[in-house]
Design a protein around this nucleic acid. Structure first.
Lengths: 204, 204
DNA sequence: TTTTATTAGATAGTATTACTATCTTTTATA
DNA sequence: TATAAAAGATAGTAATACTATCTAATAAAA
């Protein structure tokens, strides 16, 4: 998908079907045969990404029983730069990951959400969220907000990395190269929230 | 600001200077005298909103010493529908609040972030984040990620409300009318994360 | 008070964007 | 081999996101 290269290079706002058509040596109208508009194209890219990530999550947590280890693995997969998957030679997962960080929330932050949602376009994202929520419940069945916590973790894995690179004063890990601080923050947050209350609460 | 009405009605993507000019009875070129482009207009609206919210936060926590009460007040202000401020007759804060939920993160999720950031356009947002981070530190000086936690709270106050209305399966509070569940979730999360460790950690 | 800037607004344009309608070619199926 | 379906190309359009330039209003300086 050449669209990944173009969106990664100039951003989704500057991306047009004309430019994509030029790059792949076809016409604008031909691109419209496959995608009704550029917003839908972004949604399809995102859906591909979340489906792929869900697969990665299931593969990497396959033999693991401990929910703590599973959750840590998920945070790592969400927040860490992915290495290119060799089986999908046509997709550069690393570039796509960068795109989803910057453009991902634009898929649903529109007036068309409900319509796109009816067309099941957010299913991969919702499935991943539900999967993570299930592991949260497995770890602490008494926690009351597993889905909200899951969507918080997913979104913040991206936002904190974006902030780190472009608005560092919104994070506590300046302009650090890698994502290890984001992983640490998310793990710390998740397991503090889920800590089982076998000692008294001190602040209530 | 008629732009607030237009963006609220049709969304930022469908908003144009031409439509705004028509609404206020002037020409497109005249609007360009005041805003270099529509993205900057959105940034100015957001900056106005965050400045106004910062003022609300300072006003409403003025005589409060207890950081717990202050943080709860901040979560309420962030996540709850605001009532129209009568002193600013020209701005409908309630509409603006709705706009910032849906369009707010688009102000910085662009290729122009660094440029816009250099022009100090995100200062009100960053100031609010820093202010919240300070209260977090006041409450628990040992917590290591006050700024990241502050930006998480700010973003999630909006995202969880958006999800509640349009992608409810990403939250634990279906299609509830008001924002009380979002407030509960955020309070629960914040104070679990910040709980002082005067008893043993059970999961490390 | 008059001159002179500066600001604000209007007119008229342009390149680009986001499409659509329709025709032709290719490919698959009966 | 005929025929239909899919894919692609051509040529358009209305709208968008601007810019250049002209004119009118207003404010500051002489």
């Amino acid at each position: 998908m050449y669209s990944i290269q173009l969106i990664h290079k100039n951003g989704f706002e500057a991306f047009t079907f004309r430019k994509l058509a030029e790059l792949i040596g076809t016409t604008e109208a031909s691109v419209y045969r496959y995608f009704e508009n550029k917003h839908r194209l972004l949604i399809y890219l995102a859906a591909w990404y979340w489906t792929w990530l869900q697969y990665q999550v299931k593969y990497q947590t396959n033999n693991i029983n401990d929910p703590v280890v599973k959750l840590k693995m998920i945070i790592k997969l969400l927040a860490t730069t992915v290495k290119d998957d060799l089986r999908t030679s046509y997709v550069d997962e690393s570039l796509l990951h960068q795109i989803i960080i910057t453009e991902g929330s634009k898929t649903y932050l529109t007036k068309r959400v409900s319509e796109d949602n009816k067309d099941q376009l957010f299913k991969p994202y919702k499935d991943l969220c539900a999967h993570i929520a299930n592991i949260i419940i497995e770890y602490n069945p008494n926690y009351r907000y597993p889905k909200s916590l899951a969507s918080t973790i997913i979104e913040m894995a991206h936002f904190q990395n974006f902030f780190k690179d472009y608005l560092p004063s919104l994070t506590d890990f300046g302009e650090t190269k890698d994502e290890s601080n984001t992983v640490s923050y998310l793990e710390d947050m998740l397991f503090r929230v889920l800590r089982k209350e076998n000692c008294e609460l001190v602040n209530l």
